[in-house]
Design a binder for these strands. Structure first.
Length: 219
DNA sequence: ACCCAGGGTCATA
DNA sequence: TATGACCATGGG
């Protein structure tokens, strides 16, 4: 286990990349739709689909529920898996409207809200945590493939530990920090940013995903 | 031509 | 519980 703290890695990433200002969306509802649409899909493609929904003035639960699946699928085409995701969006909208409103949902404690989100077919642990962190501003640490890969390469964890085990591990390591919600928000975004723009563009980073930062300040 | 992208569900053993 | 198949467009 490397000696550098998990919080120190955060500080290094933040110093290197700066604030990420996630999630790129205008409303909590848009955050939640985007979280489903970006499943195993590049954000660039999600933006196109969101644009289609906005152009059709269909970025709300009731309109989406009224929209015929054949039409919705056309709007979702750029994200891939459009048949699957059209069904998942409708599942989500059914749940969302049944809950009444965002304000009402936001009254639930984080554990209860997480269970509710996970009960929706098409919302798994990572998508639920995206929603909790970026739509409901709860201090939940999101685990994604980049997080697994990075911290496995740095020698902190095995890459195949369960989602829950890894999430609680991070939350424990960061249990002392102030403004947890804000730190978790930036941390996840920074990990994605790092994976997208550093590892691939820095050949020297081939074996160590934290690249220059890792060699200069962490290892 | 191949691989990956801000995953999740379902059938099978 | 643990794999594998499947979903499907767009960019490198």
């Amino acid at each position: 286990m490397p000696s550098t703290s998990i919080f120190q890695i955060y500080k290094s990433l933040f110093q290197h990349y700066g604030e990420q200002n996630w999630w790129p969306a205008e409303t909590p509802f848009e955050v939640m739709l985007g979280a489903i649409l970006t499943q195993n899909t590049s954000w660039r493609n999600v933006e196109k689909a969101i644009e289609n929904l906005k152009a059709a003035a269909a970025l709300d639960a009731n309109t989406l529920l009224r929209t015929r699946t054949e039409i919705l699928v056309q709007w979702l085409r750029p994200v891939g898996y459009f048949n699957v995701k059209a069904a998942r969006l409708k599942n989500f909208c059914h749940w969302y409207t049944a809950q009444g409103s965002y304000e009402r949902l936001n009254k639930l404690d984080t554990h209860k809200l997480r269970d509710e989100l996970l009960s929706i077919n098409g919302v798994g642990p990572e998508t639920a945590d995206d929603m909790l962190l970026y739509a409901f501003r709860r201090p939940v640490f999101v685990i994604d493939a980049y997080t697994r890969r990075l911290f496995a390469r740095l020698g902190y964890l095995e890459g195949d530990v369960s989602y829950e085990a890894m999430r609680t591990w991070f939350e424990k390591k960061l249990s002392h920090v102030e403004n947890k919600e804000q730190v978790f928000n930036e941390y996840h975004a920074l990990i994605v940013q790092h994976a997208k723009y550093h590892c691939k563009k820095n050949p020297a980073c081939a074996g160590c995903c934290l690249g220059k930062i890792c060699k200069a300040r962490i290892d």
